[in-house]
Design a protein around this nucleic acid. Structure first.
Lengths: 158, 158
DNA sequence: TAAACATTGACAACTGGTTTTCAATGGTGG
DNA sequence: CCACCATTGAAAACCAGTTGTCAATGTTTA
C-alpha cells in the first residue's frame, strides 16, 4: 500500500527542502547586499539581464531572459525607468514596444553590484572545495533537467 | 580596481543561479502534483508542518516551523480551515490563540500527498548516484549555514 | 490586399509572502 | 492588585510574481 521511496529519493527530498531554505536566504541576503544602491534582488536581476545582453532589449525579451512573464518584467521596468536606471529608445521593429537600455546610472550601479557580489561570494566560499562545488552545480543542473518532465498524474497516459 | 572573484566564488555564483531555477521549477511541479487534491505547494507545506509535529499547533508555532511570519501562516490557516483541512481546538495556554489540528480530510489528504511525492521522487532520481546526492545535500547545507553571516556592508564593522 | 493570427502594453485580480499597526490576552514585577 | 511588557489575531499596505482580458500593433497567409 504505502509507496517506499528508495534511498536516493529520500536524499533528493532533503535536497528539495534545502533548496527552498537556501533560496529564501539568498533572496534575503541579496536584498541586503544591494539595498544601499536603491535596488532589490528582483531589480538587480533585471539590470543583469540587460547588462549581460550588452544591447537594449524589449520588455518581452527581458522577461524571456529572466524566465518570468512579460507582465512581471514590465512592472519592474516601469519602476526602474522611473528611478533612472533605464531609458527607452524606439524599437524599429515594433512601434509600441520600446527597447530598454541602461542609463549611466544603471551601468554604474550594476558595476557596483558586481563588485559587491564578488566580495560577498569570495567571503562565502572560504573553506569549500572547488570539486564539491562543481559536483553540486552539476547535480543541481541535472535535477533541473529532470524536472522538465511532467509530474505523474493519476491516469496520466498522455 | 575590479575585484577578482576566485574560482570557487564563480562556481558558487552559478550554484546560486541554479538554486533559483530549481526552486522555481520545484514550486511549479509541486503545485501540479497536489493540484488534484485542492492543494498548492504553500498549503502542502502547512499540512506538513502540523503532520510532522504530530500534535495540534498554534499559528505562531506553525509559522516558526515553516520559517515564515506568523501573519503569513495565519493567512494559509484561515483558508485551510475554510476548506476543511484543519479544525481549531481551544488552546489552554491562550484563549485567543487556538490550536490547529488536521481533520480526517487533512490527514487523509496529506497521506495521499506523501504517496504522490514518493512516486514522483522515485521517478526523478533514476540514474543519479546516491553519493553525488549526499554530497550535494551536504554542500547546500554548508552554504546555508554560511549564509547566516551578515552581508558585508560598506564600513560595516558592527 | 485583406483577413486571420500573434505580439505587445496596460490594467485588474489573484497567490504567497512581507511589514506595520491596533486591540485583546497573557505573564511578570513591584 | 496592577502596571508594564510580550504575544497574538486581524486588517491594511506593500513586494514580486502569476493569469486573464482588452485594444493596438505586427506578421502571415490565402
Amino acid at each position: 500500500m504505502a509507496i517506499e521511496p528508495n534511498p536516493e529519493a529520500v536524499i533528493l527530498t532533503e535536497i528539495m527542502l534545502a533548496v527552498f531554505r537556501v533560496n529564501g536566504r539568498l533572496l534575503e541576503k541579496g536584498d541586503q547586499l544591494v539595498e544601499p544602491l536603491n535596488l532589490t534582488s528582483a531589480r538587480w536581476q533585471v539590470l543583469g539581464a540587460v547588462a549581460l545582453a550588452e544591447k537594449p532589449l524589449s520588455a518581452p525579451q527581458i522577461a524571456e531572459a529572466m524566465g518570468i512573464t512579460r507582465q512581471g518584467a514590465q512592472k519592474q521596468l516601469n519602476k526602474l525607468e522611473e528611478d533612472g536606471f533605464f531609458e527607452q529608445s524606439l524599437n524599429p521593429r515594433h512601434q509600441r514596444s520600446p527597447l530598454y537600455a541602461l542609463t549611466e546610472l544603471g551601468n554604474c550601479t550594476f558595476a557596483k553590484v558586481m563588485t559587491l557580489e564578488a566580495i560577498w561570494a569570495n567571503g562565502l566560499v572560504a573553506g569549500l572545495s572547488l570539486q564539491d562545488l562543481r559536483k553540486t552545480l552539476q547535480t543541481l543542473n541535472s535535477i533541473y533537467e529532470r524536472l522538465d518532465f511532467p509530474v505523474p498524474r493519476k491516469g496520466g497516459r498522455s
